[in-house]
Design a protein around this nucleic acid. Structure first.
Lengths: 341, 341
DNA sequence: ATGAAAGCGCTAACAT
DNA sequence: ATGTTAGCGCTTTCAT
């Protein structure tokens, strides 16, 4: 097995250029006070040896400058919503010369803790976090030591930090109100795990809308804990077999909307409004009405808040709430059995 | 502005536990040769101070162990295809106790170089790379110094490293052959930048299929350089205005397929087969026929190859080609003006 | 079983 | 303008 060539260090460059390591340091870091001729010699040695500064060693010594690394911890990086958020965070980081460590929690507190521990052990300057429902006591010490934390998409239970979310409750209420406005009263709620903050909020919006119209919540029409596209489809099936089945559906995230579409019955369609837009929503028959949120804005805002904290802003934690948009296409108006108001 | 509390170091723990830093190091790193009673005292001090080991300092000293960090450099993390790949890479990394730095290149060689430089400066043990079309000379020195590199999705020009791709050319050929089999001879090609390897390959597959059927390539029907959903839609418009317009479309990636669907004319539909599956492909009217590739398998395979290299495998670079699947639904058979064979 | 000394690669602080 | 010394937080090596 071929031995890897040792990485050249400043000492090596210094020897090759006939100067001291300190001079190399100055040149490599673009600091003033080096004669142009000396700098040229150093730069030549750098090129000749293919030298690149070891930033880990650098950051170890420079205590006040940080590591120019942030961590991004999301529920699931494969989810297009979080992927868009991640890209947006990455762009903001790149602009500022930062790099981004990413990790997915799968909404498991244990994995969240592992991922965050691995990040803080590497001295990240900040963390953008889609928190799980678990405790976050392990963040206390890193935060006291200066690691900045921003929550995004959901607040962290017991975490007094900046938080960027959308108006989940109002968005859901608007969607369900739309359905009510079209004469539906048997409206099913299909949601992910209820212990996920956004889901609880959206369910509250569902209840709000029904209450405002004097429609009681029928627990038979409520399904929580739908984690997959398949399980959502299955839930629709069971809903159909009810003695008094729903005429309309409110689906509480993109995955569930997809599942509902899979299970859709063209001969007896249900009205449908979903949370989260989908790339082909307008090409469906009928075009899909949705509550749309902007992951790029969420990620970008969270990143900006984080970098302002890293930059020294130590005012009281803020809570930023971005607005959802309600995109009326057609699926909320249809439904074979929708009473003709 | 509140002064951040200094992070406790091993020295602090050592003092609190009444031992030497070396003993703390042994306990924290789970090394043998510490009396249980001593270890207990150290662990208590660790908890009391909220001590966490600084892994950057650790890795600086332990030259043979690496940093347990890999870098993932993709074209665009927001693209669901690369997002899925990223998640898959992250899972493999997490299983092994590694963390992942991510970066998007936007297919710009300059940004690719910046991102990779930032990663290697942080001493990543390996790099999974969706290379741009630029040169990669800057990788030579890090690779000589032991940084492992694996290319995924595309080979890197002049990079003699492990590469994981799919059979783009055969997949495209199959798709176009399908169209030809349904009587189409005026088949348009809509692709992204031709200097992207996958796009060139898919275009070759398009030509192969036509050639095998004795159909000449009509340059009027070929559109390269479609970077956005919108531009793809616009291209369809210009295609329709041709004196002898196409009856069928082959779209060379998901974004372009989406654009083609946006521009679809229900009164005069064109047959359509696309590269890359879409979440709602089967719910469209007509259901969309596609060449499907598996980003999770791509990412997982690339990660496995990388970790086997990091683990010491120094055999000659391999080239792994995964197979695409051709999912026949219906959009390749329809088309108002498809000659009735 | 425990500790002291040295040094990983770099830079702050202080010479010269 | 350049160099020397010390030390960031940790672990290797070699005592004891």
């Amino acid at each position: 097995m071929r031995r890897p060539v040792k990485r050249p260090t400043m000492k090596d460059v210094a020897r090759a250029a006939g100067v001291s390591p300190m001079t190399v340091s100055r040149v490599v870091s673009g600091e003033p006070g080096v004669a142009p001729s000396t700098a040229a010699r150093v730069e030549q040695a750098v090129r000749k040896l293919g030298y690149q500064r070891n930033d880990n060693a650098r950051h170890l010594r420079q205590k006040n400058l940080g590591t120019s690394t942030i961590g991004l911890v999301v529920d699931d990086l494969a989810n297009p919503f979080y992927a868009l958020m991640a890209r947006s965070v990455e762009d903001e980081a790149h602009r500022r010369g930062y790099v981004v460590l990413v990790g997915s929690t799968n909404d498991e507190p244990r994995r969240e803790r592992e991922v965050i521990a691995a990040f803080t052990a590497r001295q990240v300057d900040g963390l953008i976090l889609v928190p799980t429902n678990g405790g976050h006591g392990f963040l206390k010490q890193p935060m006291a030591a200066g690691t900045r934390v921003v929550c995004v998409d959901r607040p962290g239970k017991g975490l007094d930090v900046d938080t960027v979310t959308v108006d989940n409750r109002a968005g859901a209420q608007r969607a369900v109100t739309h359905l009510l406005g079209h004469g539906h009263t048997r409206i099913a709620y299909l949601g992910d795990r209820f212990d996920i903050w956004t889901q609880a909020e959206r369910f509250s919006g569902y209840r709000d809308a029904l209450a405002a119209h004097g429609v009681p919540v029928d627990e038979d029409l409520v399904r929580h804990g739908l984690r997959t596209r398949e399980s959502a489809g299955a839930a629709i099936g069971s809903l159909r077999e009810l003695p008094d089945p729903p005429t309309a559906l409110f689906t509480s995230n993109d995955l569930i909307t997809l599942g509902a579409l899979d299970a859709a019955d063209r001969t007896a369609p249900l009205a449908l409004v979903g949370f989260d837009d989908l790339p082909l929503a307008e090409r469906l028959d009928p075009p899909l009405t949705v509550v749309s949120q902007d992951p790029v804005a969420l990620g970008g805002t969270a990143a900006n808040v984080l970098f302002s904290r890293i930059g020294g802003d130590s005012s009281a934690p803020r809570s930023v709430v971005l607005l959802t948009r309600f995109l009326v296409r057609a699926s909320g108006e249809s439904g074979a059995r929708a009473p003709g108001r």
